[in-house]
Design a protein around this nucleic acid. Structure first.
Length: 474
DNA sequence: TTTTGAGTTGTTCGA
DNA sequence: GTCGAACAACTCAAA
C-alpha cells in the first residue's frame, strides 16, 4: 500500500470554500472525496423528489470543482466506508456534522466502528452558526422562545467562525473501480418535470455565491419590508443552497454584516437565526417531525377529506392566493415565505387538515426541504410548536393578497387564467360581478374553481374547534 | 420561590 | 378611513 489517505465524506456541505472538514483533511497528504447517497438509514425521511433533482446538479457541480475527483456511492455508508478501508490505505476520515436525529444516530455508530478499526475520525461544524448544544439557558435547558434564544443565546455567545478559504495544494484521489457516475444515482425524475424547474435556479457552489451577491446588491436594502411581497426580488432565495451546503451560513452572515449595518441586515441575520432555532428545536426534540410539541393538540379533531388535500396540493382550492403559492411550489420547487404562511394557515385552520399533510407535501416538493425548518415551521403555523402562532391568528388569503400582492403580479404569474380580472376581484373572483367575469372571459367552476370552502365560516369553525381543545385540556 | 414582562409574520369589529 | 380592543389564556425567561 502507498502513502496514507484521508477520506473527506461530503454530506450537507457540497462546497470547497469555508468547508472546515475538507480544509483540515486537505492538510493531509492526499484526500479521497466521497459522496454517499443514503436511502438506507433515512427511513421515512428519505429525500424527496425536488431535493433529488437539486442534488443531482449540485453533485455534478461539485465533481467538476474537484476535477472529477469525487467518488460516488449509493447504499449504507458504513458498508461503503469499510469497503474503502479495505482497498485504500486510509488513516483518517473527515466530515462535517449533521443534526437530523437519524443522521446523528448513524454517524455516531459509524464513528465508533471506524475508531475500533484504528481509524481517526475528525468531525467539524460546517453548517450552523451555533451548534444546538452550545445554546442553552442558564439552567442548562434549551430555549423555547425565539427572541431570547437569538438575542441572549446566540448573539451573546461566541461569534460564528470566520469563513475559511479554499484549501490549496490539494492532492485528490478517486476510486476508479467502484465509484458511480452521478447519473447512476437516478436522482432525476422519470417524468421530466425537472426541465421546467431548472431555469429558476443556478445550482452549485458558484450559483450559490452568485445568488448571495445578487441579493446583497439588489435585495437586502429593502429586506425588512420587501421580503413580504412575493412578486418582488427582496428575499435571498438562499435556502436550498444553504440546505445542501453549497454556501455556509457563515459566508452569508459575514457577507451581509460587512455590507452595512442597518435594520435590513439585522432582519436578514435574524432569519438565519430562525434556521438555527429550528435546528435547536429538532436537536432537543427528536420527535419534532412527527409529534406535536404541545401535546394538547393530539386531541384536535382534524378533518380527513382526501379531496381537500388533493385540491390544496394541486393549487385548485379556488382561493387565488393559496393556489398561486401551491402552483409556484409545483413549478419552481420553492414558495415565497409569506405565501408559505398563507397556504399553511389555510390547510390547517380553514381546511382543518393535519399539518402532517402539509409537511409531507412540502418535503417532496421543495428544493429546500429541510427536516428542521420544515417540521418547526409547520408546527409553528399549526399553533402546536414552540413559540407558535396563537390559535386565533388565522390568515385571510384575500387580505394577505391585497396587502402583499397589491398589484396582483404574483397571482397573475401563477394563475394565468385570472390575468384579465381587475385587481379588485383578483383575490376573490367568486365575488366578482357577472359582468366583470364575462369581460375577463372567466366562468367560475370551469376556467377556475369555485372556492372549496367558505372562508368566513371555516374560520369560525376553526376558532370553535380550538376552543373545544382548550376545554378538553383543562 | 415568586414576580414580572414579554411573546415573528393576523383579523374583525365597532367606535 | 383609521384605530384600538378583543380574540384567551399560558408559558417562558430572567431577575
Amino acid at each position: 500500500m502507498n502513502k496514507p489517505i484521508a477520506i473527506h465524506w461530503f454530506r450537507q456541505d457540497l462546497r470547497l470554500s469555508d468547508n472546515p472538514a475538507f480544509y483540515e483533511a486537505s492538510k493531509e497528504s492526499a484526500v479521497l472525496p466521497v459522496y454517499i447517497l443514503d436511502d438506507v438509514n433515512s427511513a421515512e425521511f428519505k429525500m424527496g423528489g425536488a431535493s433529488r433533482f437539486w442534488l443531482n446538479h449540485s453533485l455534478t457541480s461539485l465533481k467538476n470543482s474537484l476535477d472529477q475527483n469525487l467518488s460516488i456511492y449509493h447504499g449504507d455508508p458504513l458498508e461503503i466506508l469499510l469497503d474503502l478501508l479495505g482497498r485504500f490505505n486510509i488513516k483518517d476520515v473527515y466530515w462535517n456534522r449533521c443534526y437530523e436525529p437519524w443522521r446523528i444516530k448513524r454517524d455516531t455508530h459509524i464513528k465508533e466502528e471506524l475508531i475500533k478499526l484504528g481509524v481517526s475520525v475528525h468531525t467539524y461544524n460546517g453548517s450552523l452558526l451555533w451548534e444546538p448544544w452550545t445554546i442553552k439557558k442558564a439552567d442548562g435547558t434549551p430555549y423555547k422562545v425565539f427572541t431570547p434564544f437569538y438575542r441572549r443565546g446566540c448573539l451573546q455567545s461566541k461569534e460564528p467562525r470566520d469563513p475559511l478559504p479554499n484549501p490549496n495544494n490539494t492532492d485528490l484521489l478517486r476510486d476508479t473501480n467502484n465509484s458511480l457516475a452521478v447519473d447512476d444515482l437516478s436522482l432525476l425524475p422519470s417524468i421530466n418535470w425537472d426541465i421546467e424547474m431548472k431555469p429558476y435556479w443556478n445550482i452549485g457552489e458558484d450559483g450559490a455565491h452568485q445568488r448571495l451577491e445578487e441579493f446583497l446588491k439588489n435585495g437586502i436594502e429593502n429586506y425588512k419590508e420587501g421580503r413580504n411581497e412575493p412578486s418582488k426580488p427582496f428575499v435571498s432565495r438562499l435556502s436550498p443552497h444553504l440546505h445542501f451546503g453549497e454556501i455556509s451560513p457563515n459566508q452569508a452572515w459575514y457577507a451581509a454584516m460587512h455590507k452595512s449595518e442597518d435594520i435590513n441586515v439585522d432582519t436578514f441575520c435574524s432569519e438565519l437565526g430562525w434556521r438555527e432555532f429550528s435546528y435547536s428545536q429538532l436537536y432537543f426534540n427528536p420527535e419534532l417531525p412527527k409529534k406535536n410539541l404541545q401535546s394538547k393538540f393530539d386531541l384536535f379533531p382534524w378533518d380527513k377529506d382526501e379531496k381537500k388535500i388533493s385540491a390544496w396540493q394541486k393549487g385548485q382550492t379556488g382561493i387565488p392566493m393559496v393556489d398561486a403559492g401551491m402552483r409556484e411550489l409545483w413549478l419552481t420547487g420553492s414558495m415565497h415565505n409569506r405565501v408559505r404562511m398563507v397556504v399553511g394557515s389555510f390547510l390547517v385552520k380553514n381546511l382543518l387538515l393535519h399539518w402532517h399533510h402539509g409537511e409531507r407535501w412540502f418535503w417532496d416538493c421543495l428544493v429546500d426541504a429541510d427536516l428542521a425548518s420544515n417540521s418547526a415551521s409547520w408546527q409553528w403555523i399549526a399553533g402546536c410548536g414552540a413559540d407558535a402562532a396563537p390559535y386565533f391568528r388565522i390568515f385571510n388569503p384575500i387580505t394577505q393578497g391585497q396587502r402583499f400582492d397589491s398589484d396582483g403580479d404574483y397571482i397573475r404569474t401563477y394563475i394565468p387564467e385570472l390575468k384579465s380580472l381587475p385587481n379588485k376581484y383578483l383575490f376573490n373572483p367568486w365575488e366578482a360581478p357577472q359582468e366583470e367575469l364575462d369581460k375577463a372571459n372567466i366562468v367560475i367552476g370551469e376556467d377556475y374553481p369555485r372556492p372549496i370552502i367558505d372562508l368566513k365560516l371555516s374560520r369560525q369553525n376553526a376558532l370553535d374547534a380550538f376552543k373545544t381543545l382548550k376545554k378538553r385540556d383543562s
